[in-house]
Design a protein around this nucleic acid. Structure first.
Length: 106
DNA sequence: AGACTGACGGTCT
DNA sequence: GAGACCGCCAGTC
C-alpha cells in the first residue's frame, strides 16, 4: 500500500457533514507532520467523481485552500460542503470547533 | 538520474 | 492573532 493510498483511505472515513484538516489526515495515515503530502495526494484525485470525499479536507484555519491550479474545484468544494449542512461565515471560513471530525483514534 | 511540481502546518518571533 | 521560516515526498518528464 502506497503512501497516497493510506491518505485516501483516511479521507474516505470522514463522515458527511464533518471535515478534517490536512494535518489530522496525515497523522491518522501514520504520517505525522506531513500535512503537505496530503495536499499533494489530493491534487491527484479525479475531482469529477466523489469516490474519495476530497471536499471534506480543509486547512487548519477552517478555510478552503484555494489555488489557480485547481481550476475552480476549490469553489465547488465550498458548495459541496454547504450541501452537507456546513455553514461558512462572511470570510469564507467554517467553524472547526463545530465541524471537525472526531475520529475514534483520538 | 536529476529537476520540477504541488490542496500545508508546527514553531518561533 | 499575524507573519516568516522551513521541512516535507511521490509522480512525471
Amino acid at each position: 500500500m502506497s503512501t497516497y493510498d493510506r491518505i485516501y483511505a483516511v479521507v474516505c472515513q470522514i463522515p458527511p457533514g464533518r471535515v478534517a484538516t490536512y494535518g489530522q489526515v496525515a497523522t491518522l495515515a501514520n504520517l505525522p507532520g506531513q500535512a503537505r503530502l496530503v495536499g499533494y495526494a489530493l491534487y491527484r484525485v479525479d475531482m469529477a467523481v466523489l469516490d474519495i470525499p476530497w471536499h471534506r479536507v480543509v486547512n487548519v484555519k477552517g478555510e478552503i485552500s484555494h489555488s489557480p491550479r485547481r481550476r475552480g474545484t476549490d469553489y465547488r468544494q465550498q458548495a459541496l460542503l454547504e450541501a452537507e449542512g456546513i455553514v461558512f461565515d462572511d470570510q469564507g471560513k467554517l467553524d472547526l470547533k463545530r465541524y471537525l471530525w472526531r475520529s475514534s483514534h483520538f
